[in-house]
């Protein structure tokens, strides 16, 4: 019984031409159906993903280049700004120096001028004072002289002199 089944196998004897035909047709149908409904769309989506990834990589590459370019630009700008700032500071310093020089020079001239005018005034004052003293001395000497002369004058002459003086004083007023 056992050996019988082993020897005969699954094929029940005879040539199963129908099986062959059926298997072939079914396989071809299965192939066609799977191609249309399963493998085709799956391959499509895989292809699509491949393209997507490729384009993403491309985009990433591009944006990286862009970023690099921008970075370079920014760096250049920064450098420029720094140089400019340096220049501005330099300029300001120079200008400050110049201004300081100017101010100092102006102050010096001013002080010179003031000193000059002060000197001039002092000179004037001195001269005035000398003139005043000279006048005083003259009038004093006249006074002394008149006092000395007074002692030797007569009453008449004295009168006359007094009158003259009064007259003189009156005239002066």
């Amino acid at each position: 019984m056992l050996t019988n089944s082993l020897v005969l196998g699954a094929a029940g004897g005879g040539f199963n031409g129908g099986d062959i035909l059926y298997q072939l047709i079914m396989f071809i149908i299965l192939l066609a159906l799977l191609k249309k409904f399963a493998w085709g769309p799956l391959m499509g989506i895989m292809q699509q993903r491949e393209e997507h990834i490729a384009s993403e990589i491309q985009a990433a590459e591009e944006s990286r280049t862009e970023a690099k370019k921008l970075l370079e630009e920014q760096r250049n700008l920064l450098k420029e700004a720094r140089t400019e700032a340096q220049g501005l500071i330099e300029n300001a310093k120079k200008q400050g120096d110049v201004q300081r020089e100017e101010i100092v020079a102006a102050a010096r001239t001013e002080s010179e001028r003031i000193k000059e005018s002060a000197k001039l005034e002092i000179e004037q004052q001195k001269e005035q004072a000398v003139a005043a003293i000279r006048e005083q001395v003259a009038s004093l000497s006249v006074l002394i002289a008149s006092k000395v002369i007074e002692k030797e004058l007569s009453a008449a002459d004295q009168e006359k002199l007094i009158n003259e003086y009064i007259q003189e004083a009156g005239e002066k007023r």
Binding site: N16, G17, G18, D19, L21, Y22, Q23
Partner: peptide, 9 residues
Amino acid sequence: GLNFNLSNV
């Protein structure tokens, strides 16, 4: 005219 093994089918 063809033998079909129905279990195979």
